[in-house]
Design a protein around this nucleic acid. Structure first.
Lengths: 272, 272
DNA sequence: GTTTCCATTTCGTCA
DNA sequence: TGACGAAGTGGAAAC
């Protein structure tokens, strides 16, 4: 029987070299890259790039960051953007020329190459980073519902929503309203790609509403996108689809909150 | 008499802290930021952002890079783009909570804020970088001159240039030649928007040439573009403007170099 | 794969 | 300072 134990890793998370000689630096970079570790080089360098464009960066002190996947960033001491870079999956080649370390990275399709020449290296850090953390951007499903309620134009013009907030099924936020032509509108929101489940759920709900009214009832499925099969299903069920991303909703909410803050401030100053 | 000596700077280019305790780390970040130095923090952190959008990044090991101007980057071990960031000019606030270091950065207009919580810090590097190197995308001023010499059609048809390369003023490359109608042509090249200086400089040069010849002399200012006031000045000085971008020049040079490489290859294979 | 469109776009230039 | 457009745009989704 195989026994798996949690062995502490032999490699330190951060290996730091201060003022390494060129050959030592070269070896550190070469090893770091081949072992798919992150390598950060701090020093004075020149950079030339040739590929989708051409560029030349004169001598200066910068931070060069090579990532596990081969992505490369050359950062100056200021500004958000790297002055030079290479996308992930590029190939590396290092050499020393006199007292300098030369790092060359190339990529095919599109063909491009960068060459960085360090004539002085302050430090090199080689990192072993473990990052499995999930990154979630923008709004939750609930926040999407809030955003639509606060600005129904996200769905269509002249739509008026009544805040009912009744949940038909856990995890789905439903909105009711009336459109420009006075038809009832039932909306179901999904934060990710809408699947069959969401479509049939909404269809059942539309049918239920129709039992209690003589007015026309529209069903609108709102989601950042939709699978092809669900799309055909929607056509069969006579339900509409409205594309809307959590990001867009978050923007709307943020604007709304900003307005509210401003209003509050205005009221407060007025009261003084 | 004042005596200037080359004093080694008191601040080391790289200050490195390995596994600093939270309070030590906090102080290092606080000082680095207030002294407008670059600060790189390597460790395990969570990140939340609220502003133009909202986001949440779960625990994981990352590199956080704060630049001299306050720009902040949170980089995961892979990918080109930072997972979170803040633009330059944002304000910082640090604190320790239990064994964690919290870094908060805020900005107005648009209102946004990021909060990074490190529950483990592998290392902090504080950097003092000097970077005055010029970055030129596409062709340099000199290369623009080369491109024009190799293909005068970039300026106008039937222009013939004699390679004189005499510099009138540092940073300006001048080209001389003869146009279709036998007039002398004096060209001044600027890599960026042409200003008043370039115009008057060229005008003086044209006048100087006129002293030594009976032929008509044209002055052409070559630049990617020109300010409105400089344009009116050019009219007064009777100098022409030819729009030409470093990009176009770089493309011309690249094609030329490609041709040369192909020719060389053709010759070599022929000799085999 | 290629194309299209969005972005916490960033970054410059100009009015 | 705000508006407009380009970018070695990058990145995701659609086709």
């Amino acid at each position: 029987m195989l026994c798996v134990v949690d062995v502490p890793r032999a490699i330190k998370p951060v290996d730091f070299l201060e003022k390494p000689r060129p050959e030592v630096a070269r070896e550190a970079v070469e090893r770091g890259v081949s072992e798919h570790r992150c390598v950060i080089i701090i020093g004075a360098c020149e950079v030339s790039y040739r590929g989708r464009a051409s560029s030349k960066l004169e001598l200066g002190e910068r931070v060069v960051f090579i990532k596990e996947d081969g992505a490369l960033l050359v950062h100056r001491p200021s500004q958000y953007s790297p002055v030079n870079w290479m996308p992930p999956q590029c190939l590396y080649e290092t050499r020393t020329v006199g007292n300098s370390l030369v790092i060359k990275a190339v990529r095919r399709k599109p063909s491009e190459a960068i060459e960085i020449t360090f004539n002085r290296i302050h430090a090199i850090a080689t990192l072993t980073l473990t990052d499995r953390g999930e990154f979630s951007l923008y709004a939750s499903e609930e926040e999407m519902g809030e955003a639509i309620k606060s600005d129904p134009n996200l769905i269509e013009p002249d739509l008026r929503l009544t805040s009912m907030e009744k949940k038909v099924e856990p995890g789905f936020i439903d909105l009711y309203g009336t459109d420009k032509q006075g038809r009832l509108v039932v909306i179901e929101v999904k934060r990710t790609t809408a699947g069959r489940r969401a479509a049939t759920q909404l269809a059942r709900y539309v049918e239920a509403i129709k039992q209690h009214t003589n007015r026309k009832v529209r069903g609108i499925l709102v989601a950042p996108n939709i699978s092809k099969e669900t799309k055909t299903l929607l056509a069969t069920l006579n339900i509409e689809f409205k594309q809307l991303s959590p990001r867009r909703c978050a923007e709307t909410l943020n604007r709304k909150r900003e307005r509210e803050t401003l209003d509050k401030y205005a009221r407060n100053t007025k009261m003084d």
